[in-house]
Design a binder for these strands. Structure first.
Lengths: 113, 113
DNA sequence: CCGTATCCGAATAGATACTG
DNA sequence: CAGTATCTATTCGGATACGG
């Protein structure tokens, strides 16, 4: 659970704890372009396994970052979307993307396996 | 080692891989306010152990984010500072801090252990 | 003072198979 | 379709001791 209470000495530390790991931000990134279903996310968030996706979707929902909507249909349909809270992560994503674009360039020339 | 090569499908993923974990950003955060010595960092980066600090300082140096300067003195003196590359992480840190300040407030009222 | 080495347990991540 | 269950692999992290 990500509901452990602890003392945070600074806001940066707090945020890191909230969004740590390689998946949460990538999930939010995908949802930025509109609500998505579980299976869509599995495809779009490359490399994620069902287990990791479930786990992080649950966490993110509890944190109030995403919203989970169930449609009572056959076949079942569940859509995930960002809350207002979640949208506030955009600046973080943008800064990560910005830095990444610049520094990925630098790695051109090194081999990619 | 953090030198494994892999394919990155997007800049955000690349960045996350570079700065993942709870320590790297916190170390950079401290160095933002000026060069610091090993022992100072141990004190300022609350909770970090010698092992983790060494490990991440080494990583960060290899990534070109920090600079390690050795002074030939007795007693030995080593100072760590940010490179130009490292300073480019400021926008990320700022956005993390911004989000954190806002959301830490919301947790007032919940108990802190 | 500035680290490194080793050991070990805990936590995380991942592959894969299976279910309502 | 939307997940869980299970099992294993990998990494993280802390304690402690030691070296230049």
């Amino acid at each position: 659970m990500s509901t452990k209470r602890k003392v945070y000495y600074c806001p940066v530390e707090f945020t890191l704890d909230q969004i740590a790991g390689k998946w949460k931000i990538l999930i939010v990134l995908q949802l930025r372009f509109g609500a998505k279903r579980y299976t869509e996310l599995i495809k779009k968030v490359r490399g994620i396994t069902p287990k990791m996706l479930s786990q992080h979707l649950k966490d993110l929902e509890q944190q109030g970052i995403i919203h989970r909507q169930i449609f009572a249909e056959i076949p079942p349909k569940v859509e995930y979307s960002l809350t207002k809270e979640g949208e506030k992560l955009f600046p973080i994503i943008d800064s990560l993307a910005q830095w990444g674009s610049v520094n990925m360039e630098k790695e051109k020339g090194s081999e990619i396996v």
